[in-house]
Amino acid sequence: MSEDHDHHHHHDHSHLDDTALRVRSLETVLTEKGYIDPEALNRLIDTYENQVGPKNGAAVVARAWVDEEYRQWLLKDATAAIASLDFSGRQGEHMVVVENTPQEHNMVVCTLCSCYPWPVLGLPPSWYKSAPYRSRVVIDPSSVLAEFNVTLPEGTRITVWDSTAEVRYLVLPMRPAGTDQLSGAKLAELVTRDSMIGTGLPLSPAALGKDDSHKNRSSTNAPNSQP
């Protein structure tokens, strides 16, 4: 399959690949028979999040904050700009970076399954895969944001991007105030996973150096993910 073809291919219906179908089928039958509890399974998978971790994505964001030329490249051709830092997926997913501004806030979802920019963000959190998040973020993004304790200034437009097997989105959050003196590595520590999905904002410099509890805050405050 040529890359060109992939990028212009238009789907009016959804598609799951062979591996995804096999994994889902097993999950379905094992859940039906009571061998696995999807919630417990998600909690177990969550413990691997830091393995792949969102560190790659944080490095991309921090670089864009300090390097204007890189920022423009990232917004124009994210696939190449991210690959230049050696963070590309093995299937060559097409990456698109969407930038938050004072006027516009971006959020990412995969309404049909759980397509996720894992080469830069690691494993998706369980709430990202939950049906309530997938369906509600499109209909009522501001109430979903409220559940993540995010309040945007009055009048901010919210745009929701729906990932597919071919196109994965990454949010470029706004650089927090008071960070002019910080190095790239320190800046990257401010960039949370959720801020790159759009369900959170970057940490303020004052939050650095405190305990690590903020890192997992969103996992426990996830929107109602009960079926």
Partner: peptide, 18 residues
């Protein structure tokens, strides 16, 4: 189940959860 999931995916318009 494989066929059911495949069918569900194909009949789900993009933008809706499967």
């Amino acid at each position: 189940l494989y066929d059911d999931w495949n069918h569900a995916a194909h009949t789900t318009p993009h933008g809706e959860p499967i």
